[in-house]
Design a protein around this nucleic acid. Structure first.
Lengths: 331, 331
DNA sequence: TTCGGTATGTCAATCGTACGTCACAAAGTT
DNA sequence: AACTTTGTGACGTACGATTGACATACCGAA
């Protein structure tokens, strides 16, 4: 039978529908024998309780909305994959939302998630105003961006990352150190990388040089911008706020005959498995993707199961410098 | 009010719940005035119809299950992203399932999707037997793998890809041409790449050389295996059945001082945007990711809206050779 | 025998929405 | 004035499962 319902199981097992429901929900008095009869009937019919009908009863839907700008970016891809895995282990399903950094799409998604009665949202893309997120009235945890005082943020220690990267470049001999930002949104956690860079540069009594290379820029244009900078300025160190930009830097440097790390040292940011596997030459600041996923899920479920649970406003996880050839000191 | 229901809107608008329902579904006779009253009330209350309750009424859930082994692989990441986008445009939501090539996980996912009353499934990972998919009783479209005669397959022209790649290597001068397979599952559409390679090699009266470098292998081990082969055999052409393996080949060749393309020509497979952007030196066979996503969604929705619709068993989309430096003829 | 605990069944209400049916009113037609 | 057309809203039932109240039946123990 295709898509049998509770009453079919009852018939098959020779018990009342109520008993079946009780067995499923382990509710009230039940003999082992009855339980077995029911379980076997369920198996025979390949019965799956209709979770739609269940959640209509005010039960949870076990659905979690996960909003990120794009899973085709390896960093988000890996993060989303980890999140999905952990949610799955805990019996939750992931509704994927690629907002593509599109405000309208994000708004529609948000409403859609509400309509679908998701139990909570993990939000990693924020183009909407705070208000829209506040009136959602659902447990939300934010990744790496400030939404509102009631919505906890999970991020890695972007400031420390900025400091680490700058120090590393300095220690391996760089003196004219650039920062390539992939966006410029002051006060966002990501911006702390920049602040870390600036503070360190100051402490080292060097001059700060920032360039914004917006992440939305087509990569060919990025390449041109970078080539332009590399060929006109005398640079010996670059700290990129993401690994992909760093890859472009490495490529352009090579094409221009600038040797890495002899003439130029480069550090990226994110440290995905992907980069570590396929670009082991790149020094990078690795975010603890697995731990962040873990924490995002844990905090969200805490809110889901207990609305009142007190969470901190900001959870900061440590980053790690992965030193590779692109930042080696050349003796 | 948080999560108002239809009846609240009715009260707010001063009409009956029925009228609200009719306005929402544009059903029956309605005056402009009433419509406006209702719409405004909806807006005031920030009302979202509870799609759970709607779908209980035998309506569609507008949910589609998307099963792939892993979105952290850029190829699947990009494909899933495209799929999700197209589904979204058509009013469907994507439930993401990363099966991690785990049979048990896939089975649980399948049941979960049934329980959630998804309207259909796009399956790109198949470790389960045909039976399990057949008894799902839902519209399913498969990506790149054979499931059962009733489940249509969408894939790119893997055979042509195998032929193209081998020809390209030959034409640019390679004579000892290896095929690095990322899996060995005979009869799968992906295996056609191998068949294309073998047929072409035969036609060219060359000797075939195959190595299986399982995609589950840790990349460091892959690197070792490849290094081993490169350093012991006299090879001048390698056709990898995915781009990532090709990247490892390029790296190992470089480390061994084997020049590409002078001494060795390399071709990958997949041709993601990612590879094109960040590894423009790699020649590759590009699968039409966007078209495949489009077709997967289109066929699935055809089945969803009309169960009887006749679909072909296999849809094959053309591939394209993207010629780059790694396979250039060196004069 | 009777009581208490255990095991199962029956019945009905409930969740939020959809929608067919019906009744009625206003407007238009003859 | 009698009749049709059309707009409007009420009502009731259905969707599939949950849950509580209550009844019934059985068992062994006091």
């Amino acid at each position: 039978m295709l898509r049998p319902k509770l009453i079919d199981v009852a018939r098959e097992a020779g018990v009342s529908p109520t008993t079946v429901s009780r067995v499923i929900n382990n509710h009230g008095y039940l003999s082992e024998e009855t339980k077995n009869k029911v379980f076997q009937a369920m198996k025979r019919l390949n019965y799956q309780p209709n979770s739609i009908a269940r959640s209509l009863h005010g039960k949870k839907t076990q659905l979690i909305g996960v909003i990120f700008s794009s899973v085709s970016n390896p960093f988000f891809g890996e993060l989303v994959e980890k999140i999905e895995n952990k949610l799955f282990k805990l019996g939750y399903k992931t509704i994927l939302c690629n907002s593509a950094d599109n405000k309208e799409k994000e708004r529609v998604y948000l409403n859609m998630l509400i309509a679908n009665q998701v139990d909570g949202i993990i939000a990693g893309a924020h183009n909407l105003g705070i208000k829209e997120y506040e009136k959602v009235g659902l447990p939300i945890i934010s990744f790496d961006r400030y939404l509102s005082s009631t919505i906890p943020i999970v991020s890695s220690d972007n400031y420390a990352g900025g400091v680490l990267a700058t120090q590393e470049l300095y220690q391996s001999g760089a003196r004219k150190i650039y920062f390539f930002a992939s966006s410029h949104t002051p006060n966002s956690p990501t911006d702390k990388r920049r602040v870390g860079y600036l503070d360190t540069i100051k402490k080292l009594q060097l001059e700060a040089h920032e360039k914004v290379i917006a992440s939305a820029t087509p990569s060919s244009v990025k390449a041109l911008m970078i080539r332009q900078i590399l060929s006109t300025e005398q640079i010996d160190g670059i700290f990129c706020s993401d690994d992909l930009t760093a890859l472009i830097v490495l490529r352009q440097a090579k094409e221009l005959g600038i040797r890495v790390p002899q003439d130029l040292k480069v550090i990226g940011y994110d440290g995905t498995q992907f980069i570590q596997k396929y670009h082991p030459e790149l020094t990078t600041i690795a975010q603890p993707i697995n731990d962040m996923a873990e924490l995002l899920v844990e905090l969200l479920l805490k809110r889901v199961t207990d609305e009142q649970s007190e969470l901190k406003e900001h959870y900061v996880l440590p980053v790690k410098l992965i030193r590779n050839q692109s930042s080696l000191q050349f003796i």
